[in-house]
Design a protein around this nucleic acid. Structure first.
Length: 180
DNA sequence: AACCCGCCCAACT
DNA sequence: AGTTGGGCGGGTT
């Protein structure tokens, strides 16, 4: 259990509905702590956030530019999603993986194995998958663009699973069809 | 240190 | 399409 940032820093939360379900951005004044996507029920999303951040959550929603960019993204526009993120609790390996994943362009896919090779860990495909499974910043760190080397889709740990992964790739007009 | 697990992969059957 | 053993990072005893 990693120690969470439960100091007196106020943590705000924006919740909004999209075509792929209820989403949320949790942030301090300085950086985004967590992005949550794909909940069909607002109530469940709230529950999840409360579980992760407890009562540190500020009730009133903050306006954050990333939420606007996400809405653009869901409308089908090709946007490069980026924001200030708090990576302080991430392992060096996770940071390397996420940095590499962010270089995979909109509308394209790459494989876990390639990503592993790119960060100098040629046999670490599975470890890369493990790191992406813990991705606190879905969409901004586009782990949905990473698929398996055998031509199948691969997993997706966010709410909605691989069904959502496929939806996101279709939204980005990735035309490839996946085995499975 | 040892043990498990996972968004994997290549090489099989 | 399904199985197997290897490989790697991380978390848990």
């Amino acid at each position: 259990m990693s120690s969470m940032k439960c100091t007196t820093t106020l943590v705000s939360c924006a919740i909004f509905q999209t075509k792929i379900g209820w989403c949320a951005v949790v942030a301090t004044g300085k950086a985004v702590l967590r992005i949550v996507i794909g909940f069909s029920e607002r109530e469940q999303l709230l529950k999840q956030i409360l579980k992760e951040f407890g009562s540190a959550i500020e009730k009133k929603p903050a306006r954050m530019s990333i939420t606007g960019e996400m809405k653009q993204y869901f409308s089908g526009k090709e946007v490069f999603l980026n924001c200030a993120m708090d990576w302080s609790s991430l392992s060096p390996f996770q940071q390397k993986v996420y940095k590499a994943a962010m270089k995979v362009p909109y509308g394209t896919v790459d494989t876990y194995g390639n990503l592993a090779r790119r960060i100098g860990c040629p046999k670490g495909a599975r470890a890369v998958g493990g790191a992406l499974a813990k991705n606190p910043f879905p969409l901004v760190v586009p782990c949905h663009r990473i698929v398996r080397g055998d031509g199948s889709l691969g997993g997706f740990s966010a709410r909605g699973g691989s069904v959502l992964k496929k939806k996101l790739l279709r939204l980005e007009r990735v035309n490839r069809r996946f085995k499975g």
